[in-house]
Amino acid sequence: MLSLEEHQGTCPYCGEPITVLLDLSQGTHSYVEDCQVCCRPISISVTEEEDGSLSVSLHDENSTF
């Protein structure tokens, strides 16, 4: 069963607030999604913490994380 959740973030390129849809059933994962405002590719990392919570980070394509 898919478990989806919206996450509010900020585009690392244009600085505009954006909403990304996360698939919570995947645990720790990374993927690329284009910004809805400036259309540049954002690297999105979702990390499942030991307590089961998720942390989300958004980076430009040239960042190392």
Rank of each mutant, 00 (worst) to 15 (best):
M1G: 14
M1R: 08
L2D: 14
S3T: 11
S3H: 14
S3P: 03
L4G: 03
E5N: 03
E5S: 10
H7C: 06
H7T: 10
Q8C: 09
Q8H: 13
G9K: 01
T10W: 11
T10N: 15
C11I: 04
C11Y: 03
C11V: 03
P12F: 07
Y13S: 00
Y13M: 04
Y13W: 06
C14K: 06
C14V: 02
G15E: 05
G15S: 11
P17Q: 09
P17S: 10
I18L: 12
I18F: 06
T19G: 11
V20P: 00
D23N: 15
L24K: 14
L24Q: 15
S25M: 02
S25D: 10
Q26L: 15
Q26S: 11
G27A: 03
G27M: 05
G27Q: 00
G27W: 01
H29R: 14
S30T: 14
V32E: 13
V32D: 04
E33G: 09
E33A: 09
D34F: 04
D34P: 07
D34V: 02
C35W: 00
C35L: 06
Q36F: 11
V37W: 08
V37S: 13
C38G: 07
C38E: 04
R40N: 09
I42C: 09
I42W: 05
I42P: 00
I44H: 08
S45P: 00
V46A: 02
V46H: 01
E48R: 13
E48I: 08
E49W: 04
D51E: 07
D51M: 03
D51Q: 03
D51L: 01
G52K: 02
S53R: 13
S53V: 01
S53P: 00
L54K: 10
L54P: 01
L54A: 09
L54E: 08
S55Q: 05
V56M: 11
S57W: 02
L58K: 02
H59R: 14
H59M: 11
D60E: 05
D60G: 07
E61S: 13
E61Q: 11
S63T: 11
S63L: 01
S63W: 08
F65M: 09
